[in-house]
Design a protein around this nucleic acid. Structure first.
Length: 772
DNA sequence: CATGGGGTCGTC
DNA sequence: GACGACCC
């Protein structure tokens, strides 16, 4: 049946706390919690160390409340930037963990900032053949619990810990004994093949967790089962620093006493409805209902899911995705701080936009992807508060563009006229999110050739993960050797972002690829190893020859390109101001203008065409930088002309493109590695903007100039009556009231009352711009 | 006022 | 695309 997969969930233990403890080692082993916004009642706690949990401190408590329960608790505050909580630190730490996990499998799915699913099926298969007849001994699984074989999975015992250490230690001791006992029995019995595979999965998971600890200094727990739901479930059974495997035989035993709300997806209204309507309390109770009965209660699709789920079956695949699908931020404005004026809304849109913009820039730099869509979330005061979303496509992500696009999107949610100062109803939550990412061609190359290029450098791990036979002992586990040397480097406390910068880009690129590549051995470790090796080589004086060759050619190019670009863009700008009004789907037009105006730069032509190809609504923003000198523009143009190929951007197309750009890709990689020529690099990559005297990366210059032109245009066109559509976006105009009225509660506001006139919109927008 | 600030997915 | 449900 569906017991073929081996699925693991890795869940970091009180992750934010661990991040802070790594930064401030004094905090280790102490009761502590991470709080947000300390001023109101000590802030809300969003992570609690296990020492503090022993005192009854829980997530969601106010800091002061926590202090009452645990006077010695250390409260650490989430960093604040632009007057809002900033989770960057934790996001980057989470990426570190994903990086480590991806050394073991290509199929890693980031489930949240501190959780990831891994499908180890193939890796287990490979290890199984290595292992041959060798049995798995209990000592090989020092931190593994077997669910269902332990009598004490109930939350009963855990609770009575208020007396502190003595009692807890005692509990822990006996728990360790039963753990070993049951583990030994399970391993000895080991009836089915599927159980064997779980055992191997547990073994690999021990190694993964050891590697995570060694490389990041973070502890985690894990669940190992045949599907995501069960892996997630059992992960929580033995929480700090332990892993739990769930043989299929044990499912019913675990479900028998398991409240329905504990299962992922049943923690909310659905679970409550099921519990009530069917008069059941535990997951195991559900098996007595037929599929049809369940379907009658919860709908046909959910019914099927429930029927299978309560039997321990679930099909949801582990999707290879190591990067978030969206990048956004939001903030609450409670009570008196609500946003009740246009100025306040503008201000906070600006703050949110800056953070999102910054993060999107990082996304492009690190992960070579740019968003196509922007959404604004608004919650407004009301008897039931109303929440609305408005989205549109975007072609650039500088803070100004985001900010004014966002404003134009939500302006018609203001019931007061937009010439008024007020915003009604006041906004109590405001959010901004970018999504629908598109990969840029840079670095994405023909996998086979890229891989062979890189793999010649690395230790040659087999597909699916490092080959490791040795087993972790105690907390001093062995992790994949060889590769480990490249990774273990450091990550000294306090310099997280630095170390991320070095590892992040390569990993993420691989991560993006991971979704599509077939069976080949194209894993991140090869590429990362390559980078690490290069870095080491620089320090140690060892070096690879091939790289210098390509690198040289590329650098010559890069000194000239910016100038061309600058001229071209200026010319173009003067000639076509419509470009900046209402989302032109141009592409072709702007591209032609660039090409014509510039005369004849093959490289840039190729670049424009390429971009037009990859972005269905082309824009000249976000130049994919550093394309190859010998890039064949003509061939690409052909592809672009055919309408089908534009939309049907698939692997084939990509391969063809990358085939052409291959040497280029290598050159780019090398160039990015060449820190030795610091001077050259600086000179070629940065220019001073004539307009604002800011130092701008040459590759960002077109976009930057774009911004100035937009500003000029806006100034010139004051009062033109045109809707404030922005240069970088295409706003979709929806009925302004539809969504609010949708629900029950007959109170529908007249559509006319909310209509906003474009004239006033324009004015408002203009004042918004000139204020900045 | 008071778990906030993230995220993902399914449905219409 | 908008919204709600769900999760941490």
């Amino acid at each position: 049946m569906s017991l073929e997969r081996v699925v693991v969930l890795i869940d970091m233990d009180c992750f934010y706390v661990q991040v802070e403890q790594r930064e401030q080692p004094e905090l280790k082993g102490k009761p502590c919690a991470v709080v947000q916004y300390k001023t109101y009642k000590g802030g809300g706690t969003i992570a609690v160390s296990y020492e503090a949990r022993d005192h009854g401190v829980k997530r969601g408590m106010m800091g002061e409340e926590a202090q009452k329960l645990c006077p010695e608790i250390q409260l650490v505050r989430v960093p604040v930037q632009r007057d809002k909580a900033d989770l960057t630190k934790y996001r980057e730490a989470g990426a570190e963990v994903i990086n480590v996990l991806s050394q073991f499998s290509k199929n890693v799915e980031r489930a949240s900032i501190d959780e990831a699913y891994i499908d180890l099926t193939d890796v287990v298969e490979a290890r199984l053949s290595q292992l041959g007849d060798g049995a798995i001994l209990p000592e090989m699984l020092p931190f593994t619990h077997v669910a269902g074989w332990e009598t004490d999975t109930n939350p009963e015992q855990q609770r009575k810990d208020e007396d502190g250490d003595r009692k807890r230690q005692k509990t822990a001791k006996s728990k360790e004994d039963t753990r070993k006992e049951h583990l030994s029995q399970w391993l000895k019995d080991m009836s089915s093949e599927t159980d064997k595979r779980l055992a191997v999965g547990a073994l690999i998971t021990e190694e993964m967790r050891a590697a995570v600890l060694k490389q990041t200094k973070f502890n985690c727990s894990a669940g190992i089962a045949h599907n995501k739901m069960l892996a997630k479930l059992v992960c929580g059974l033995n929480k700090p620093r332990k892993q739990t495997v769930l043989p299929h035989n044990s499912v019913q035993a675990v479900f028998r006493d398991l409240p329905i709300s504990k299962v992922r997806g049943l923690g909310g209204k659905l679970g409550a409805a099921v519990t009530q309507d069917l008069n059941v309390t535990n997951m195991g109770d559900l098996v007595k209902y037929t599929e049809q009965e369940l379907q009658a209660k919860v709908g046909s699709k959910t019914g099927v899911w429930l029927y299978r789920t309560c039997r321990g079956f679930e099909d949801e695949p582990v999707r290879p995705r190591q990067l978030p699908k969206s990048v956004g931020c939001s903030k609450n404005f409670l009570g008196k701080s609500c946003l009740n004026t246009v100025e306040k809304v503008k201000f906070w849109l600006g703050q949110l936009s800056e953070e999102v913009s910054e993060r999107l820039q990082k996304e492009e730099d690190l992960n070579n992807r740019i968003p196509k869509s922007l959404s604004v979330y608004v919650r407004q005061q009301g008897k039931p508060p109303t929440t609305s979303t408005r989205s549109c496509s975007v072609h650039s992500y500088d803070a100004q563009t985001l900010s004014r696009t966002a404003l134009s999107l939500i302006q018609n949610l203001n019931r007061a006229g937009s010439h008024q100062a007020a915003w009604v109803p006041a906004i109590i939550n405001l959010g901004l999110s970018a999504s629908k990412f598109t990969d840029l061609p840079k670095f994405r190359g023909d996998n086979a050739s890229l891989d062979s290029f890189f793999s010649s450098q690395s230790g040659g791990a087999s597909a699916g993960g490092p080959s490791v036979i040795s087993v972790p002992q105690k907390s001093n586990g062995k992790s994949p050797q060889g590769l480990e040397n490249f990774f273990s480097k450091k990550s000294s406390p306090g310099s997280d972002s630095e170390s991320l910068k070095e590892i992040g880009p390569t990993e993420q690129r691989v991560a993006v690829d991971a979704g599509t590549p077939p069976k080949g051995d194209v894993s991140g470790k090869n590429i990362v190893s390559f980078f690490k090796k290069k870095e080491n080589a620089k320090k140690e004086g060892v070096d690879g020859k091939e790289m210098q060759r390509t690198s040289h050619g590329c650098e010559t190019e890069s000194t000239e390109k910016p100038k061309n670009f600058k001229v071209v863009i200026n010319e173009k700008r003067n000639g076509s101001k419509e470009d900046l009004q209402e989302g032109r789907r141009d592409g072709d037009i702007s591209r032609k203008q660039i090409d014509d105006g510039r005369g004849h730069d093959i490289k840039e032509e190729g670049e424009s065409v390429l971009r037009g190809f990859f972005h269905s609504k082309s824009s000249r923003n976000h130049s994919s930088r550093k394309l190859s000198p010998d890039f064949k523009g003509s061939e690409l143009a052909k592809d672009e002309d055919s309408d089908s190929s534009r939309k049907e951007f698939d692997e084939d197309t990509a391969s063809r493109l990358y085939g052409e750009a291959k040497t280029e890709v290598q050159a780019s990689i090398e160039e990015s590695l060449e820190d030795t020529d610091v001077d050259t690099k600086k000179d070629s990559d940065y220019v001073t903007c004539d307009r604002c005297q800011k130092s701008i990366s040459a590759w960002d210059l077109p976009e930057h100039l774009d911004f100035h032109v937009a500003m000029d245009l806006q100034r010139r066109e004051n009062g033109s009556g045109t809707a404030p559509s922005t240069s970088g976006s295409t706003v979709s105009h929806n009925s302004s009231v539809k969504t609010v009225a949708g629900k029950r509660k007959g109170k529908q506001q007249g559509p006319a009352a909310k209509k906003v006139k474009s004239d006033s919109n324009s004015k408002t927008l203009h004042s918004f711009f000139s204020q900045k």
